[in-house]
Computed example of a mutant assay.
Amino acid sequence: MDLMERVQRRAMKMIRGLEHLCYEDRLREPGLFSLEKRRLWGDLIAAFQYLRGADRRDGERLFTKACSDRTRGNGFKLEKSRFRLDIRNKFFTMRVVEHWNRLPREVVEAPSLEMFKMRLNEALGNLV
């Protein structure tokens, strides 16, 4: 747990009326996400912009679409590259692929960035 997460945990304990709840429930009450989930949210929005938005050319270089005829999940799966060094698993492209592939079809196929954000909030809200 990093410093920012500890600060957020301490601040959430100071809110009156929520002292008896666990950390996740204290976050859920005002409609907040943990810092880890907010980082993921930002990464997935950036990936959407690379893959579907104005940065599409850069997205084609960053991500590889998985060739699959499976119909389960979303229809826009990304391929995860393999590296020998563990440090590469922290790269943006490696962090995003697994989570992107788990998103429901209606989230990935959103027609606009705003719709993607709304649907992503719902999908991530179900994960807490």
Score class of each variant (00 low, 15 high):
Leu113Ser: 06
Lys13Val: 00
Glu60Arg: 13
Arg39Phe: 05
Arg72Phe: 05
Glu109Trp: 01
Met12Leu: 08
His20Glu: 14
Asp86Ala: 15
Asp55Pro: 00
Val108Glu: 05
Arg16Cys: 06
Met12Asp: 02
Asn89Glu: 15
Met4Arg: 13
Arg26Glu: 05
Asp2His: 07
Gly59Ser: 08
Ala123Gln: 11
Arg38Glu: 15
Pro111Met: 14
Arg70Trp: 03
Leu40Glu: 15
Pro104Lys: 06
Leu127Gly: 02
Asn101Asp: 07
Glu79Arg: 09
Glu19Gln: 14
Asn101Thr: 05
Phe76Val: 02
Arg82Cys: 09
Asp25Ser: 01
Gly73Phe: 03
Thr93Gln: 12
Leu124Thr: 06
Glu5Phe: 00
His99Arg: 14
Pro30Ser: 05
Glu5Trp: 00
Val97Asp: 07
Thr93Asn: 12
Leu51Tyr: 04
Gly59Phe: 04
Arg84His: 14
Phe91Met: 13
Glu36Ala: 06
Arg52Trp: 03
Leu124Arg: 12
Pro30Tyr: 03
Gln8Tyr: 03
Leu113Tyr: 06
Leu120Lys: 13
Phe116Ile: 12
Leu120Trp: 09
Tyr23Ile: 01
Arg72Gln: 10
Arg102Asn: 13
Trp100Gly: 07
Met118Tyr: 04
Phe91Leu: 14
Leu18Asp: 01
Arg95Thr: 08
Leu35Ala: 04
Glu114Met: 09
Leu85Gly: 11
Arg9Tyr: 04
Tyr23Val: 01
Val97Arg: 02
Leu35Gly: 10
Leu18Gly: 00
Gly53Gln: 13
Arg26Asn: 03
Tyr23Glu: 09
Ser112Gln: 09
Tyr50Asn: 14
Thr93Arg: 11
Ile45Phe: 02
Thr71Gly: 05
Glu36Gly: 07
Arg10Trp: 03
Trp100Ala: 07
Leu18Cys: 02
Glu19Pro: 00
Phe48Leu: 12
Arg70Met: 08
Phe76Thr: 05
Ile87Pro: 00
Leu124Val: 05
Asp58Asn: 11
Phe63His: 11
Ile15Glu: 01
Leu18Lys: 01
Met115Glu: 14
Lys90Cys: 11
Leu127His: 07
Arg72Leu: 10
Met12Ile: 00
Ala47Asn: 06
Thr93Met: 08
Leu27Phe: 04
Thr93Val: 10
